[in-house]
């Protein structure tokens, strides 16, 4: 038993953090929100070169390094921390789906996902797919199978402006029979949980920095107990979500992943509420950078399984075996 990231995994996180810090992701997010994908695609390529999408592509395929869910979780915490836009979770999910397709299809479609040449999105049932207008590969999942959707409908805005929601056009080539697998859903939820955790960590860091700087009544507001205790609670929520995310990545049991998703998204969202409150009015503006994370924390809560659905899975699996 050794439940800590190893040196290589920590170095991977640090290198992604450095890459994303240098990339001015807030500016990329602004472009993406307007439907201008140029800077986002450039950033996407660099993320892909760092090996992020390859972690979900089996190593038997060109460019694949996976499946490596722990490293994927490491990466998605950083992507969330830097509010990177685009169908990140969906591209990972598409890779897992395609890994189960016939070898010819997988061989054709997986390498461009690993290399970052193609962005993918996934729609389930009649729901919206994220960034269908940017994706070169659109997978539409229904009970009868998974199809390569021929197009997408008009973009609907999300509460998170960086998330552009699109219905997928019905029809298209049938790639796989049967619905989205439990395993593919688990990968989607794991990536979402890790991303949400990163969002929460960024919100906490930014808010701690703010309350140290911002003075009222002649002192930093971070010296007031009402402020300090809200931040302590945010810290506790995030610190206890963190091991759930990595525990889930290790086991990849669907109920454990659902637990991580519920906890990480709750922690991120409650931290967002705290961040908004403690920033005061400036936090409520679209212009101020905090909004990039605030709105994402809300959106991720219901992406790939709302809190109740995740909790229901946890309860239904309990008693079958110890975690």
């Amino acid at each position: 038993m050794r439940f800590l990231l190893d040196a290589e995994q920590r170095a991977f996180a640090a290198s992604l953090d450095a890459l994303l810090t240098a990339a001015d992701t807030p500016a990329v997010v602004r472009d993406w929100s307007r439907g201008d994908h140029t800077s986002g695609r450039a950033l996407w390529s660099r993320v892909a070169q760092a090996g992020v999408f390859a972690l979900a592509v089996p190593e038997t395929y060109d460019g694949g390094l996976g499946p490596r869910p722990v490293e994927l979780a490491v990466a998605f915490v950083e992507l969330g921390r830097h509010a990177v836009p685009g169908p990140l979770v969906e591209t990972v999910t598409a890779a897992v789906i395609l890994s189960g397709a016939d070898p010819g299809t997988a061989k054709r479609l997986l390498p461009p996902l690993a290399s970052g040449g193609t962005l993918a999105t996934v729609g389930v049932g009649r729901s919206y797919a994220l960034d269908g207008d940017a994706a070169g590969l659109r997978l539409a999942c229904s009970s009868d199978g998974i199809r390569l959707s021929p197009g997408h409908g008009p973009v609907r805005p999300s509460l998170d402006p960086a998330r552009r929601l699109t219905p997928l056009t019905p029809g298209g080539e049938l790639l796989l029979a049967g619905p989205l697998t439990e395993q593919a859903l688990a990968w989607a939820r794991l990536a979402t949980a890790a991303q949400a955790l990163g969002v929460g960590l960024a919100l906490l860091d930014r808010t701690v920095a703010h309350v140290k700087r911002r003075c009222q009544f002649g002192v930093p507001i971070g010296s007031f107990q009402a402020v300090r205790h809200r931040l302590a609670d945010a810290k506790i929520a995030l610190e206890f979500a963190h091991p759930l995310v990595f525990g889930a990545a290790l086991t990849m049991r669907p109920a454990e992943v659902a637990a991580a998703k519920a906890a990480a998204c709750e922690a991120a969202y409650s931290t967002a509420r705290t961040a908004l409150q403690l920033h005061g009015a400036i936090g409520y503006t679209a212009e101020y950078g905090l909004s990039l994370w605030l709105t994402k924390a809300r959106a991720l809560r219901t992406a790939w399984g709302d809190p109740h659905a995740c909790r229901a899975l946890v309860v239904s699996a309990a008693g079958d075996r110890r975690w």
């Binding site: 206890f240 759930l244 525990g247 519920a262 909790r311 946890v314």
Partner: peptide, 28 residues
Amino acid sequence: TRDRVADALIGARAYQLFTYAAASRFLD
């Protein structure tokens, strides 16, 4: 009460894993 039972199950696992991580650091 389904969600609250789920939270009890999730919290126990979180606490267990948090402790395993702390124990790992302690052993380091």
